[in-house]
Design a binder for these strands. Sequence first.
DNA 1: ATATTATAGACAATATTAATCGGCGATTAA
DNA 2: TTAATCGCCGATTAATATTGTCTATAATAT
Lengths: 163, 163
Amino acid sequence: MQYSVGVEYALHCLVYLIDVPSKESVGIKDLAEFQGLSETFLSKVFGKLSKAGIVSSVSGVKGGYRLSKSPEDISFWDVIEAVEGPKPIFQCKNIKDNGYLYRENCCSAPSSCTINLVMLSAEEKMRDYLRSKSLSWLNEELDRVLPKQIREDTQKYFSKSNI
Amino acid sequence: MQYSVGVEYALHCLVYLIDVPSKESVGIKDLAEFQGLSETFLSKVFGKLSKAGIVSSVSGVKGGYRLSKSPEDISFWDVIEAVEGPKPIFQCKNIKDNGYLYRENCCSAPSSCTINLVMLSAEEKMRDYLRSKSLSWLNEELDRVLPKQIREDTQKYFSKSNI
DNA sequence: ATATTATAGACAATATTAATCGGCGATTAA
DNA sequence: TTAATCGCCGATTAATATTGTCTATAATAT
């Protein structure tokens, strides 16, 4: 049980979009090449991000993607939900309602599954944390953690195409 | 991205083992039949629970499974980890280290991925909650939530084979 | 002994994930 | 206005994971 790599791709790519001037954009090709990822697959991921309103696209020559709102307002959870969809982690097929006893007297009111409620609450704890971390927070963290040189070179890489 | 149904099967089945006297056991066949589940698949799930020390098995005629420790000491997370394995739900392939800049000058120290650290912390929030809910808590909750009649009938169902 | 049960592993069907391919329309630059 | 570049979308494939089944084996109560 794991999130798809799409989530990982998305988060890493979005980092590179944070400091891109709002008039510019970065193409899928650049993002894929820079990180050694599949271009076509990455474009699918960005389709989802676009649909979720996290990025906006610029089509045509010199087109690409840019953030469609402030990095302050984009949380880890926003990104994950955009890529993975809203489905809960725990699947509840209401097993108890298929149970022998219920099959016999089928008129009992279908109560909500206690086990599922626990799982939903647990997942909510995780989401709350992910909602509390934004892209701008991540950007600052990376400034703190990564060598200055690398950060600058990276920014340069993605702006060079739009000199 | 979802936990396998095995997790759901396990949790629901374990509920039925809570009140089983420590000298008795419940067979896979009964558990599967009662809930309308695949018997062979359920036996795989119980293999994992057994390996994880959550249940212990009694083989041979009139054999089956019973809890191998107090329901107080079995948490939701214990069960999930037993069935799903210990792998984190976010896959980190250290994309950043495959990046263009790193490919060029490969001698930079491989730092840990900040994105991954966030994901691990988030997951930990979920686990903490799941660790705080035990089978005995669940049992009390079910007593509170489900009709008394259903609970009694259920207990009767699983004890009848060992009169 | 025999029937019943867990255990283990090989196998198979299905679903999901990851990725590719090809065609479309939009945009820009020449 | 034409050619090249790009995002967009749908179909297709390949690889992997999930959800089972089937068989053989070992343990055990009757």
